[in-house]
Write a protein that binds this DNA or RNA. Structure first.
Lengths: 115, 115
DNA sequence: CTGTATCCAAGCGGATACTG
DNA sequence: CAGTATCCGCTTGGATACAG
């Protein structure tokens, strides 16, 4: 009943996509998962600045959107692993290109910022 | 005039990129400009749902980030045209990929939503 | 036509404490 | 370890009015 209706009406493809990966941490989470499975704690440590609340929220939304899979192991201590779905993996080339573009721009900015 | 305060410290490339194109309308604005110059009113009409306030704000930030160019023509009635910079054009292939991915996903969702 | 200015509601996101 | 719960400030963004 508390199911979020947070995708009211995507008007176009670009909109649809940004609703799914445009959050503050979602892109970085997906990028972290590019090499395979990661645990909750690993993500919290490597996605710098994220709090458990925001991480959980982002992971839930990514799961609802079928971009990642949540696997729970019933053991002590508890273990939860996250993995990209096939759909999620399809986003990796895009993220790769985006990151390359960003790194290039950041270099230019660094040069321009030199005194 | 504290315009630049919203880019505190991009920690990684993905973050940097989303700060620049991750707003609610920025992706769609850039995409609208893919075929060339557009006027303010054209953008307001075609980027559905945007208000003049948000459109102006997004355009200013994109201009500050050197992704678009704002050209003002001193005439009556006034005319202002926006165009992608070379840096902005470099984003088009990524937006294209993203939109293709999104359209594909939207089709799947439509099929799944069928009664 | 191309914006500004102002008000205001919603929700994002951070800090902290707590649970199974 | 992997989360929930709660509080709350700040930003985002919508509506409306108005200006050059």
């Amino acid at each position: 009943m508390d199911k979020k209706s947070n995708h009211p009406a995507p008007k176009c493809g670009i909109d649809y996509a940004f609703q799914r990966i445009g959050g503050k941490y979602k892109g970085r989470i997906l990028w972290r998962l590019r090499n395979g499975t990661m645990r909750y704690g690993e993500l919290r440590r490597t996605v710098t600045g994220v709090t458990s609340k925001m991480l959980t929220q982002a992971l839930r939304e990514l799961e609802d959107d079928c971009l990642i899979v949540r696997q729970v192991y019933i053991e002590v201590p508890p273990r939860v692993e996250y993995t990209l779905t096939d759909t999620g993996k399809e986003l990796l080339p895009f993220l790769q290109l985006l990151r390359d573009w960003a790194k290039h721009q950041m270099q230019i900015n660094d040069i321009l910022a030199m005194p």
